[in-house]
Design a protein around this nucleic acid. Sequence first.
DNA 1: TGCATTTCTAGAGTTATTCTAATTTAGCCT
DNA 2: AGGCTAAATTAGAATAACTCTAGAAATGCA
Lengths: 155, 155
Amino acid sequence: MTVMHTRPRAFSMMENTMNERPFAQAINRLREVDLRPTRQRLALAKLLFEGGCDRHVTAETLHEEAQRSGARVSLATVYNTLHQFTDAGLLREIMVDSGKTYFDTNIHDHHHFLCERSGELTDIPAHMVTVAELPQAPDGRRISRVDIVIRICDQ
Amino acid sequence: MTVMHTRPRAFSMMENTMNERPFAQAINRLREVDLRPTRQRLALAKLLFEGGCDRHVTAETLHEEAQRSGARVSLATVYNTLHQFTDAGLLREIMVDSGKTYFDTNIHDHHHFLCERSGELTDIPAHMVTVAELPQAPDGRRISRVDIVIRICDQ
DNA sequence: TGCATTTCTAGAGTTATTCTAATTTAGCCT
DNA sequence: AGGCTAAATTAGAATAACTCTAGAAATGCA
Ligand SMILES: [Mn+2]
Ligand SMILES: [Mn+2]
Ligand SMILES: [Zn+2]
Ligand SMILES: [Zn+2]
């Protein structure tokens, strides 16, 4: 399956070598999308993108994590920042169940396992799913994305 | 002067069961799962299943529709009924975006177009999508369903 | 027809999210 | 460095979409 993603390249704190100025990449990346690199945005970027592993966070979970790490960021700012990062192509929004919005640090073409017991999301790289045939988009429309959620349960 | 004492006819469940053929199936289905065919449930079943076309409703939209049709059903009952119908296998729940829960009258294997402009859902019969390869479910789990949402936008 | 059980309902409560308006901060310009 | 202005942050209020509660009504059974 091929869906056109003309999205900015993933922003990764891992690209910083240890001795480079901390946050240099983050600051540049935020500048590119006209977001001032404030203390709050940098703290959240660090939590989201440092460590490199793909994450699925809610505003609430990221806020708690920020508190625990000692960063003083309001919940309103966490919401604002998650949406700004999403608009900037640094995050992807996923709405999958139970009225909660997840933000995915993996912006590459991929799909998800959804655990029906816990609600946990797990990435599936795009190459592991082959869609041989898709219907045409209705007249005057085009396909912007194909989201595949594989729901898993016990046994 | 003549005063008409036309006592409102008592509601007869038997009459409805026998005469209103479109609901015979729903009523039997409800009986199977121990849901009494009450005035409210039958009114909502009529709105949902009469006309045959596949629908994607929210509690709010179905409640408005019920009001307009003259049925007096509380919003709480609409929520209860939609969940009961879902548990009974008469509806399927879809959570696709914007924190709203949609209920789908099409319970057969199928997928959806999602209009990114309006949020409107449209059915795609399962045979129009061919999935050639799927990843294995994690150890001790099995795939319960594969949901495919094709997001469409303008142009 | 009486009675236990189920269902319905208004309104209160909850949760996730957005809005508002006052305060603080960032970036730029002397 | 100090001042200015737009952007950003924040606490708390507001909203949206449910969910719960507890009393009233309907239902089905004997
Ligand atoms: Mn993901
Ligand atoms: Mn459908
Ligand atoms: Zn799980
Ligand atoms: Zn549309």
